[in-house]
């Protein structure tokens, strides 16, 4: 991405509502959904990769099984995992006082 590009907000102003009485359950739902999203992203990508490989006659599945990940690749994957964690636990950094049905604190 162009580093000079203006940044847009990604969170709406204000508190998130709490639907569950037990503290933390609402955040847990977010975590599960973020996880499900990323799982899907991966499945879609794998699907595309296999299709592309197939189109080019590459025995992709077999090579994946025996592939050795290098140190540099390991570090890169670690960075990707950290980003993913940030998404997964994003709600923990937001104000999370309960809001009642009228939207008032």
């Amino acid at each position: 991405m162009d580093s000079a590009a203006p940044r847009l907000p990604v969170d709406a102003e204000g508190r998130r509502p709490a639907f569950f009485a037990e503290d933390g359950v609402d955040q847990l739902v977010t975590m599960v959904l973020e996880l499900a999203t990323e799982l899907w992203v991966l499945r879609e990508r794998v699907f595309v990769i296999e299709a592309v490989a197939d189109r080019h006659g590459l025995p992709l599945k077999a090579e994946v099984e025996t592939y050795a990940i290098s140190e540099a690749e390991r570090a890169k994957l670690e960075g990707m995992r950290v980003t993913m964690m940030g998404q997964l636990f994003r709600t923990l950094n937001r104000d999370h006082r309960p809001v009642d049905a009228d939207g008032k604190a």
């Binding site: 969170d11 998130r16 509502p17 639907f19 569950f20 359950v25 739902v29 959904l33 999203t37």
Partner: peptide
Amino acid sequence: KFYSSVRYNAQEM
């Protein structure tokens, strides 16, 4: 509760 919570999250997403 789950309907609302999931729908709210989907809106953010």
